[in-house]
């Protein structure tokens, strides 16, 4: 009984660490209001050329080839959903992945690491603040893009789509924890993150249906498709598009996508936590925590 009381008390304290970290991160972010506006608006600038390119190629918003590959011919709504959700991947990579590196840049990493708390909860706090910010960015992006180009979605299924999105966010937390550990160990991650970022946008169905990989690369496309399926963004996009896009034909069933997202979230969260704890101990022991 005593044990469980102690456990609860310690958990409450740990969660306080997370909430204060999240609060601090949000405060810092909103102190740079131009950056907040930049990240909210810029994805629309990246999306717009894709839409103009599509219009130049097919002369409207409906593509029969897209319909063959994805069931849905409306490439504009397909793209708006894809790029809004892609914001979460960017956040996992550039936000959470870089969160400890940023402490290093500010010269506060050592102070943070000697604080008397479980460091995992600091990371969790950073993940929470990133999720709040990214959700804000994704909503702004979706609204702006819908106003400019008109998204045609099944609004009645929005709640289901949000539930899938939450599952994807948990899985991406795991990716973020893994990256934090790797970056803590190897320091400068710019080139790696840029590459991973672009590679994910190619093998996951952000701008085009998954089947397009097979359509373009034939047998090699199957391997790329399989790699793409492993990343949590793909099943999440497949399930969310099934809920939101009329007549969307997913490559994997929604049940399978949800099951995979749950399993992969658990695996990634456990692996991420273990790796982070391991790296934390290793950099402390080798004395390279503060090395730049």
């Amino acid at each position: 009984m005593k044990l469980s009381k102690d456990f609860i008390r310690s958990l409450i304290l740990d969660l306080k660490v997370s909430t204060s970290t999240a609060k601090k991160e949000l405060l810092i972010n909103f102190r740079y209001s131009l950056w907040v506006i930049f990240w909210a608006v810029m994805p629309v600038f990246w999306l717009t050329p894709m839409i103009f390119q599509g219009e130049a190629l097919i002369g409207g918003r409906s593509s029969s080839s897209f319909a063959t590959l994805a069931g849905n011919a409306d490439f504009i709504t397909f793209n708006i959903i894809g790029s809004s959700l892609y914001a979460y991947v960017m956040s996992a990579l550039w936000g959470m992945g870089l969160s400890l590196r940023r402490e290093q840049w500010s010269g506060t990493l050592e102070t943070v690491m000697v604080s008397p708390c479980n460091k995992f909860f600091i990371l969790l706090g950073k993940a929470i603040s990133d999720s709040v910010l990214t959700t804000f960015y994704a909503i702004v992006q979706f609204i702006l893009a819908s106003l400019l180009f008109g998204a045609r979605i099944k609004l009645e299924n929005l709640t289901y789509a949000i539930l899938v999105l939450l599952l994807m966010v948990f899985a991406l937390y795991g990716v973020g924890f893994l990256l934090s550990g790797i970056i803590l160990m190897y320091k400068e991650p710019g080139a790696l993150l840029n590459f991973v970022n672009t590679f994910i946008s190619i093998i996951c169905p952000v701008n085009y249906p998954l089947k397009a990989l097979v359509f373009v690369f034939e047998s090699l496309g199957y391997y790329l498709l399989l790699i793409g399926l492993l990343f949590p963004l793909t099943p999440a996009l497949e399930a969310i598009r099934t809920f939101l896009l009329p007549s969307f034909d997913p490559l994997i069933s929604t049940t399978l996508a949800l099951f995979y997202l749950i399993v992969v979230s658990i695996i990634l969260l456990i692996a991420g936590t273990f790796l982070f704890n391991y790296v934390e101990k290793r950099v402390r022991r080798s004395g390279v925590l503060g090395t730049y």
């Binding site: 190629l57 593509s63 897209f66 590459f195 946008s201 085009y208 397009a212 373009v216």
Partner: peptide, 19 residues
């Protein structure tokens, strides 16, 4: 690598649209 990946992505997208 990056310019190659950008070209690749743009061409896959175009081919998916045009067929």
């Amino acid at each position: 690598l990056m310019p190659l990946l950008w070209v690749l992505s743009s061409i896959i997208y175009s081919k998916a649209l045009v067929g």
